[in-house]
């Protein structure tokens, strides 16, 4: 497999990484921006795409003025191709697309537009596209998360954030199963298992699959395969204590034990004063403070994500 992009229908498509996290203010945007710069610094061509509905500020972290072009120009056919909505950033190899306004327009009713957008993101002529997802686990967010090659969740060492992350993982998993059932026709078995939800005490994906296996073994095995191929990643941000550094591994363990889902821990990021300093300088941390603990963590996370791909091939 070539190191740049993945082949699809004879075309090379970009690798897509989506960064979400269920909760707002966990550092998704800063992590997306700095990871994109880290990739660009390694000579990969990248696009950072802002899909944060509520608080779109990826452009600020990247040092780009709020662009007058966005995805909505593409969806309204004001421009011919998606790449016409790209704007340059101060960083070589890195472009930016604002999608926030467009997302407002394509909210729930226009499912087909979302699908179209996902299709066109896949045709962008770059090595990597990084999606900054909004907070929450709406269907929009989940679908972008699931469309990516690597879905990344940012978690803070706080009960609410951890709870949201579990909720997100479960919601994404069920969404994925639901989509898969359209193909394999196991919807009936899932529905049946879900109807008996209360009586059978189904709380986790693992129990759901167990129940489907009893009702319809063939469908159950199909779901098992789906479960195996669902591999979200997590990052613990703003780690302060030693326990916080272990949190990522603990979540991986708990997801395995209780959901039967393998989550990959990409590493933790320690609290770092250089973040505030970088904002003041209007520069990204990996650029302004390349040897800070934050920058080193970002590089290591990016390496892990790149590695994920090599191992799996």
């Amino acid at each position: 497999m070539a190191s740049l992009g993945t082949e699809m229908n004879g075309h090379i498509r970009p690798r897509i990484w989506a960064v979400g996290g269920g909760k707002g203010g966990v550092g998704k945007t800063v992590i997306t921006a700095n990871s994109a710069i880290s990739l660009a610094q390694q000579g990969k061509s990248c696009i950072a795409l802002d899909l944060d509905l509520g608080g779109a500020n990826l452009h600020t972290v990247l040092g780009v003025p709020d662009p007058d072009r966005s995805l909505s120009d593409f969806l309204r056919r004001k421009v011919d191709t998606l790449s016409d909505t790209m704007v340059p950033t101060p960083y070589p190899n890195l472009h930016f697309i604002s999608g926030s306004k467009a997302l407002l327009e394509i909210a729930n009713p226009k499912f087909s537009q979302k699908e179209k957008l996902i299709r066109h993101i896949n045709t962008l002529d770059v090595d990597y596209v990084l999606l900054d997802l909004g907070a929450g686990s709406s269907f929009n967010t989940l679908d972008f998360f699931l469309s990516a090659d690597e879905g990344v969740l940012v978690v803070l060492p706080e009960p609410t954030s951890v709870e949201n992350a579990y909720h997100f993982i479960k919601a994404a998993f069920y969404r994925r199963l639901k989509k898969a059932t359209r193909k394999t026709g196991v919807a009936e078995a899932i529905d049946k298992a879900m109807e008996e939800k209360v009586a059978r005490g189904i709380q986790s994906p693992r129990t759901l699959i167990k129940n489907v296996l009893q009702i319809n073994p063939e469908a159950g095995h199909a779901l098992e395969e789906e479960a195996k191929s669902f591999k979200p990643n997590i990052i613990v941000n703003q780690a302060r204590k030693r326990d916080d550094q272990e949190l990522g591994n603990d979540i991986v363990q708990a997801c395995h034990d209780y959901f039967g889902i393998s989550v990959r821990n990409l590493g933790h990021i320690e609290e770092d004063e250089s973040l505030k300093e970088a904002v003041r300088l209007r520069r990204a941390v990996v650029d302004a403070f390349p040897v800070s603990s934050f920058a080193r963590s970002i590089h290591s996370i990016v390496r892990n994500l790149l590695g994920v791909r090599n191992y799996s091939i």
Partner: peptide
């Protein structure tokens, strides 16, 4: 390690399990 992960004060399992499930585990 497992015992710590499923103990009452564990951040990773705090919101995941009911007290009964925790006991059972």
């Amino acid at each position: 390690r497992k015992k710590t992960l499923y103990s009452e004060g564990s951040l990773a399992t705090y919101s995941l399990l009911t007290p009964e499930q925790r006991e059972e585990m």
